[in-house]
Design a protein around this nucleic acid. Structure first.
Lengths: 152, 152
DNA sequence: TTAGATGCAAAGCTTTTGCAGGATA
DNA sequence: TATCCTGCAAAAGCTTTGCATCTAA
């Protein structure tokens, strides 16, 4: 967990939420705190509900979903959907745009950043004649042990 | 609709399915025919069910979902999930790997191919130390009218 | 004090499953 | 004819909604 990112996002989120006139209710505060720590890369909505329950105090399922939807509306989190159609969220930070790699063997999701890929994307968008407001990339495959050639 | 693609995929699908020992039942045949024509770019599972109903004869919802799952298992279709978590399918063709652009204004999805982007992806994968089995790219934004500068 | 937030329970959607009847090879 | 396929209906899983209660400002 990146603590600097956590604190930066937390401050940003609080500012933005109070700016939007939202009050500091119990459920809202718990979800925000949880996302700051556990939501730096995609977490399932259900995992968030369960995670909060484990932390004690909980927060009703409906409230968690409502807060997540709110955060998404404010641009504080990014939302995606897993292969089974379940919602997943991660905090959104302008300085930390990342993409995802899914390990075929384990299904584990890891984040990565790649400036050259971003550039290629921008160029492709230009060729396409579109002005980008966002983009998502998901790579699937297996990790190659260091030093080993890519081929089997 | 690309008729050459339709026929090529149809032939490929039939070969592959009979090779897998699958029989030519009514529901299966209808779904395959539908996908060959209407599934060249992402279509929702529900749209497929409705589309078949409109074509007459229908095919039970359960059967459609079962066939789509089968096709996916055989590698004949690609599966993704929309923002609401509903499944979408499109036929898979080795010669026609494409990505998707979603128009912010209309939500319309269009397909595009970009060789340079594929190369950049392959290079990024190498930097990451992974061997790719697949990848997905989704661009979001708005189309820029020809001749107009990208900036507003 | 009052608009807003929360929790519970019920409803909604998409997708999956169980099973009896029907079709294919 | 035996196996596989299909359709119906019911179940399952995730998410949203309605409503009464509680709370932050």
């Amino acid at each position: 967990m990146d603590q600097a990112l956590r604190d930066r996002w937390l401050a940003h989120a609080r500012r933005r939420m109070s700016g939007a006139g939202l009050r500091t209710g119990a459920a809202r505060a718990r979800v925000v705190a949880f996302m700051a720590e556990e939501g730096q890369c995609l977490v399932g909505a259900q995992e968030i509900v369960d995670g909060l329950r484990e932390r004690g105090g909980g927060g009703a399922q409906a409230s968690v979903y409502r807060v997540l939807d709110e955060l998404h509306g404010l641009g504080l989190v990014r939302r995606s959907v897993d292969d089974q159609g379940a919602a997943r969220y991660e905090i959104h930070d302008d300085d930390h745009h990342h993409h995802h790699f899914v390990d075929d063997a384990t299904g584990a999701v890891t984040a990565f950043e790649d400036a050259a890929l971003e550039d290629a994307l921008a160029e492709a968008a230009e060729r396409l004649g579109v002005e980008l407001s966002g983009h998502e990339i998901v790579l699937r495959g297996r990790k190659v042990p260091r030093g080993a050639p890519a081929g089997d």
